[in-house]
Computed example of a mutant assay.
Amino acid sequence: MNYSKTSENTGSDVNFFTEISEHQISAREFFSCVLLDALDRNFHLQNALISYYDTKGDFLSWTSKNGVMMDSNTHPYRAYIDKDLIRHIIFQEAVKDRLTYFNIEPRLYVATDILGKDQYDDSPHAQFLQSHFNMKYSLSMAFGINAYIQVTFFKTAEQGDFSEEEVQSLRKIYVYVANSYKNFKKHEQTKIVSNIQSEIIASGEKAYLVTDDFMHILSSNELAKVYLKDILGTSIEEDLSRESPCTWLPFLLGGQGQEQMEDSVQTRVIRNYVFKIYTYDQCYSNGIIDRYHWITISKIEEKEKQDHGRRELPLTVTEHKVAELLYEGMTYKAIADSLVVSYHTVKKHVQNIYLKCEIQNRYQLFKLMDEENFDK
């Protein structure tokens, strides 16, 4: 492998940029073997590894040209996790800088620069590379939320450490990858928001906003803006920006966490408005989960004016109990534990509820439950 080839001609640059630009449009996951193959084919970067972490810095898996290797008790990285100073520094700096998938400024970490050239040969890092990859030197790139994706390139002792010229070439490659990843995430989020909006329309809710788990508002409609202005004032317009975190969302999303399931819902009452907060998880084969929220807003006084002549839900006692627990925001598993039945029994009850109430999803059930509660 000759790293100097990464800067020999612009043809490779153009081919690589074209390849990953096409990849970003059709890919289900951006950081994959396809990217590793493109790096090798265009820049002769044969020895590379993609590592994945959650947003708290915990290891999930890594990908080589042989595919994905998920974390397990026997994973080679397990014995080295606590000694990985480089990953610790990458994570801490990413948290401090609030790194997201929209970052395109190069974030490169040369192992010998971090650990010191004099102490490097005896470091746990050098020993780990030698034991598991038969390599000596490494350079890592950090991408995504809190640097939860890390692409590492290796060199042997014979090849020597990364030169300044090679680092500059890799900085350029970082920008190519980061820009394509940014476009990939925007394209992916557009599809996610569109799917969520379809669910909201089907539920009959009229005011909504869609957010990611890092306080960015991805979409909102005009009625939601009117309601939010009534609560928070006219300055709300400045917060409805996709590029910067929203200052009041942490208060609204308080209590939301990774332990919550995708089919859970939280209800908040602020002044005379009811906020219902749903979760949507985008899961990847590497173990990463990107969490989104969609929030509906309704005025309590509007609900009280609804027609009170509606029929009661045509459910059995058990089905009604399941419906109430769903309305309270409990997951299928939590309902099964509460009623001391199996998960599949709960699922069957839910199917019967949908059939009897002539609805198609959980969100339409919430609307019916609202109507029944206000009738009483």
Rank of each mutant, 00 (worst) to 15 (best):
H216K: 10
T112F: 00
L139T: 00
Q197L: 09
F102G: 05
E105W: 10
D161E: 03
Q127L: 08
K117M: 04
F102W: 07
S235G: 10
G116H: 07
S198E: 14
E199Y: 03
H125M: 02
V110Q: 00
F184I: 08
Y227M: 14
S169W: 02
F133L: 11
E199D: 11
N179C: 11
Q130R: 12
S235I: 13
D121M: 14
E188Y: 08
L170I: 02
R171S: 12
F214P: 01
V110R: 00
S194E: 12
Q127S: 07
F143Q: 04
R107H: 10
F154T: 03
Q119Y: 14
Y181G: 06
V175N: 05
I201F: 01
L232A: 14
V151E: 09
A202M: 13
Q130S: 08
E205C: 14
L108S: 01
K172G: 08
L115D: 00
H216Q: 13
H216D: 12
P106A: 12
A142V: 02
I196T: 12
L228I: 14
Q159L: 06
Q197N: 12
M141G: 05
I217P: 04
D230S: 15
S131M: 11
Y174C: 06
G233C: 14
E166A: 04
A147G: 13
A224R: 05
E238W: 07
T190G: 05
K191R: 14
Q159H: 01
L218F: 12
Q119L: 15
K136S: 02
S241Y: 09
S198F: 08
S198P: 04
H125L: 03
Y227T: 07
L228C: 13
K155I: 02
I192T: 08
Y208T: 10
P106M: 11
F154V: 03
S169L: 06
T234K: 10
Y120C: 04
I104K: 05
K172R: 12
P124G: 01
F143Y: 14
D161A: 06
I201M: 07
N134L: 14
S123M: 05
F184L: 11
I236T: 15
S140L: 05
S194K: 14
D113I: 02
L240H: 03
L232V: 13
S163W: 02
E199N: 09
G144H: 09
K155G: 04
V193S: 02
K191S: 07
D239T: 09
S123I: 01
D122A: 03
V110M: 00
V151G: 06
S203I: 13
G144P: 06
Y137F: 05
Y208S: 09
V175F: 12
N134T: 13
K136Q: 00
F184H: 11
Y208M: 11
L108M: 04
V193D: 03
V210F: 07
Q127F: 03
K172Q: 14
I201R: 01
G160S: 11
I196S: 09
